[in-house]
Design a protein around this nucleic acid. Structure first.
Lengths: 138, 138
DNA sequence: TAATTTTGCTTGCGTTTTGCAAGTGCAAAT
DNA sequence: ATTTGCACTTGCAAAACGCAAGCAAAATTA
């Protein structure tokens, strides 16, 4: 499962080898918006990922250094998932996806507003968000 | 086949509904580098996409307005595929994928050099490339 | 202390998608 | 007239997906 065989040396291809499916980037999205999530939190997302698919994607992302598991401060039964630096570095890409989607889809008002905010100072927005996320890496 | 059912209103999710797989963005990549490709050109790419998968992805991307078919100027037997404006607008995202991959993978020297060039003036690079691609939309 | 619920998964199994090979139809070249 | 090139389509086995149920450990409740 963790054997990631690259199809080529192309950066796009290598990237898709890791997160090129319908679910992985939704996990990354949840972590970028919420900073940290439990297994149950991911299951609650509106796209309704199947629990076995979630487990396999979390494993894949962890194997590839995009996310990490940490123990929950309040409970041993819970597991906290967080973005690594490698995961945080997906932020600019995630933002460009948002901007593209904003041009061609109808987005929820709150998302649209956030993107308008972003457009005023993209670099500043990214820097701040990056710091926020990095702060939660222990 | 062309029934694109959105899983949610989330921009990331909606985007993944279209090109969230291991192959679609490789097709977009080929078109961004080469401006236009025939069916056979895509098959020649080093990732070796299967011919039936290629056909289904081209259909999907066309249905969703990311690429268009055009007749080849030299031959009726050939078909030219090109990016639409919607496809060209994926450029910033594709560049961010490249930059991310450059940080975490070993890229071929020519790609690495292109990215160093890009980093000197990202906006300028994007603008120029955008114009190049737009020029080939008839 | 015992029973119940929560949490993070795993397992089974039918359906869908993938990947490989071979085949088809039309256009162009020989 | 026949062969070759090009853009697909078809068949089929293997893998991945998606849904439901199950499970062990931890936490909560009785």
């Amino acid at each position: 499962m963790s054997t990631t065989k690259k199809r080529s040396e192309c950066p796009i291809s290598s990237s898709l080898d890791i997160w090129g499916d319908k679910w992985s980037l939704l996990i990354v999205r949840d972590l970028m918006f919420s900073k940290q999530c439990t297994y149950g939190d991911f299951l609650k997302s509106e796209e309704k990922i199947a629990t076995n698919i979630l487990a396999s994607r979390l494993q894949m992302l962890e194997d590839n250094g995009v996310i990490t598991k940490q123990e929950h401060p309040e409970s041993k039964a819970k597991v906290l998932y967080k973005l690594t630096q490698k995961g945080i570095d997906l932020l600019p890409m995630m933002i460009e996806i948002n901007l593209w989607a904003d041009k061609y889809f109808t987005l929820p008002p709150d998302r649209k507003e956030m993107l308008n905010e972003l457009r005023k100072d993209k670099e500043g927005f990214i820097k701040q968000k990056r710091e926020e996320l990095a702060a939660s890496i222990s």
